[in-house]
Structures are given as C-alpha cells and as structure tokens.
Amino acid sequence: MSSKEQGLHLVLEVWRQKGPEDAGRFESYVLDSVSPDNSFLEMLDQLNEKLVKEGQEPVAFDHDCREGICGACGCVVNGQAHGHEKGTTLCQLHMRSFPNGAKLVLEPFRATAFPVLRDLVVDRSAFDRIIQAGGFVSVSTGSAPDANLVPVAKDNAEKAMDAAACIGCGACVASCKNSSAMLFTSAKVSHLALLPQGQVERERRVAAMVAQMDAEGFGACTNTQECEAACPKEISIENIARMNREFFKAKLKRL
C-alpha cells in the first residue's frame, strides 16, 4: 500500500501554553493516517480528537470560515506564517503539500502586540483598534447610489479592490522581523483613500491609524518584503508606499 492510501505519518512539535502568564513549551506528538486531502486545520482536528481520547488537553487554535476569507486562522508552520504555500491561509493549506514523515513545528504568531492567549491562539484585537481609529467611513453618504453614478477610475477601482482583499489575519506582523503592522494598516488606508467615499476623512484617517499602530507596539517597516510574500491575499507593499505618501500629505496639510 502506498503512503497515500494509508495517509501521512507526521511528527508535530506544537507550542503549548496554558495562558498569557504561562511560559509555554513545545510538546511532541505523532499523528498517523492523515489524509493528504485534509486541510491543515482538519489535521489539527484529528490531533485534538486523539488528544481528547487520551485524556489530554486539545490544542487551542483559531478558525472560523475555513475557506480563506475570514482571517481567523493562522499559525507559524516551520517558521512560515500559514505554512510555505504562496497566497494560502492555513485553512486552505492541504496536507498533500507535506511529504510523508514530515516534521512540523507549530508556533503562534509572535509579536509584542499579539500576546499569546493559549497554545496557537493570539490576541489580535490590536488590529481592531487600528480599524476603530479610522478604518471606516462615518460621513453619511445616503443610501446606495446607482451603479456607475459615482465614477471611479478603473485603475483606482482595481487597486482599492486589491487592498480590500486583506482579511486582517496578521501574517504580515507574524512574518516581519520587526512585527510591523504597516502592510495591514496601509491596505486599509489605501482601500479607502482610493475611493470617493473615503475622501472626507482621508487625512484624519491615515494620521489616526498610524498613531494607533504605533501605540499598540508594532515595529516600523524596514522594507524586507517578507510580509508581502507571506500574505495569503498577496497584498502588495506598494500600499505601504502609498500610506507613507498619504501620511506625509496629511501632515503637510495640517501645518
């Protein structure tokens, strides 16, 4: 029988941490008969069923949609946020991406601004507070206008859509050596700065979001571009250049 029929044999090194105050440590587990068609999260489900049967605590991990659109899932697999596949969330990563007998080291996203709550679950509410600082449109624009009533240049529409693809998973912060949140923040700033609805609050938005980003304890971008490569939605660092531009323009106007 091939290993495909038997399923994969995996050696897992998983970060276990009881709570925010616990120091945490790696624990080893061996898992057999993992279907290559399973997603990474289904593999973790399988591990947890095994742990529960053995009377052990299951591994805590975040998940919700399991279809790559909500941004809830994510951990670091062998040093890479969401694993090694390009443009893929952990829930959309399939076990066929790993060879039989693979050793997988699972760690939570690491950042001062993302404290570990338990095992692989981190507190990403810092992102929510960055959004609350300005990532919205609060001026009344009436009910939905007819399509194409407000013209948006094709190029801007495309760029705004690309930026809006950010699901706020935090892989950018996780993969950055400085734990910078500039890819996330710049995607949100760009998305609204490129659309007519975002114009009224444009300057205040970028100033407030950058200030909140700093207050949360994220680092500053040094342009190593690892975030863009790790992003499951492949958000471009072009957005960071745009955010810097927006920030500078906003400061000049305030002078």
């Binding site: 001062t112 950055c176 304890g217 190593t224 571009q225 490569a229």
Partner: peptide, 24 residues
C-alpha cells in the same frame, strides 16, 4: 523599537526568500 516589537523569535528560522542579506 523594532527589536522590542518582536522579543521572541521563531524556533524554526525561515524566510520566503524576499529578505536579503543586506536588508536584514
């Protein structure tokens, strides 16, 4: 400040090949 933002490194060091020796 950047160092303080990431006090704990990963047990497995890996890059996606975008960071360069110079940038790091």
């Amino acid at each position: 400040a950047n160092r303080d933002a990431k006090p704990q490194k990963y047990a497995v060091a890996a890059t996606r090949g975008k960071a360069t020796l110079a940038s790091r």
